[in-house]
Nucleic acid binder design. Structure first.
Length: 269
DNA sequence: ATGGTAGTTCAACTA
């Protein structure tokens, strides 16, 4: 009986600036695979040596010019890049996937934030977000059936009432509008994924993975949202240790923190 | 109703 694989998703908001935060987290939590979003780093500038020194030398990365977006997967075990559906009409660096030696696929997504105005006519970024959400379910339905598949990332949508600090006050705020939450849940279900957080934790319990930088005291005000997700398809779910699901809010604090906390899950391999 | 912070790249954009 080998020990289960520990998988992490974390919007790191610049991997070059926060490589030390990642190294501290890896030393404390010993993940086997870490999926990062908002690396804000072109591939040639990715701090590969820092990840090698952390014991996560195997990389699948996709960055872009301009200091925005970017996704990366770093692994203790060898990984190969896996096929992903075409979800981003702007062709930004938002989707990447890796296949582990066991055949388990890990898909890592940074979904567009969508700007401030929740109107696809007035706000092109919101239109792009809705288009991405519409493509998500059909895209994953086209991938090869039978593979064990985990999908993680910053999906920039808080789907449940208790995924935000105030359902009522956030209904017209981008990330919690019905336009987004209905699309996210429709896409998730149609592609056969389960939302592992809500298998692990009752719907009645508040769950947050992100707290704004703009609060005077993020922990005291605790106006969070659950934007970061771990999904498992039916084939993978039998290997998922649901009770191992954790949000690590301590990493929202400390030295130059990301505005997102890391989220982890153990999976038998 | 507004403005509050952070990162990248270098005045403005994204979040």
């Amino acid at each position: 009986m080998t020990r289960p694989l520990k998988i992490v998703t974390w919007n790191i908001n610049s991997v070059r600036l926060r490589a030390p935060n990642v190294a501290d987290f890896v030393a404390a939590e010993a993940p086997d695979v870490i999926c990062l979003q908002e690396t804000k780093c072109q591939d040639a500038e990715f701090p590969a040596k820092a990840f090698k020194d952390m014991g996560l030398p195997h990389l699948v990365i996709r960055g872009q010019r301009g200091g925005h977006a970017g996704v990366a997967i770093a692994s203790r075990l060898p990984i190969e890049e896996a096929e992903v559906p075409d979800l981003c009409r702007e062709n930004q660096a938002r989707v990447i996937a890796a296949r582990l030696p066991s055949g388990l696929e890990i898909h890592n997504i940074y979904l567009p934030a969508g700007g401030d105005i929740p109107d696809p006519v007035a706000n092109e970024k919101f239109a792009h977000k809705l288009d991405f959400l519409d493509k998500l379910g059909p895209g994953y339905k086209t991938l090869k059936k039978g593979a064990k598949r985990i999908l993680v990332g910053d999906l920039n949508v808080a789907p449940h009432e208790n995924d935000v600090w105030s359902h009522k006050q956030l209904l017209r705020i981008v990330s919690h509008t019905p336009q987004e939450t209905e699309r996210l849940e429709d896409s998730r279900k149609s592609a056969g994924f389960s939302d592992v957080a809500r298998l692990a934790v009752s719907d009645e319990q508040k769950l947050y993975t992100w707290w704004s930088y703009r609060a005077a005291d993020w922990a005291a005000s605790n106006r969070g949202r659950r934007l970061d997700h771990i999904w498992a398809n039916k084939a993978a779910l039998e290997d998922v240790k649901v009770d191992s699901y954790r949000i690590h809010p301590g990493w929202r604090g400390g030295w130059k923190p990301s505005d997102h906390a890391p989220v982890s899950l153990k999976i038998k391999v």
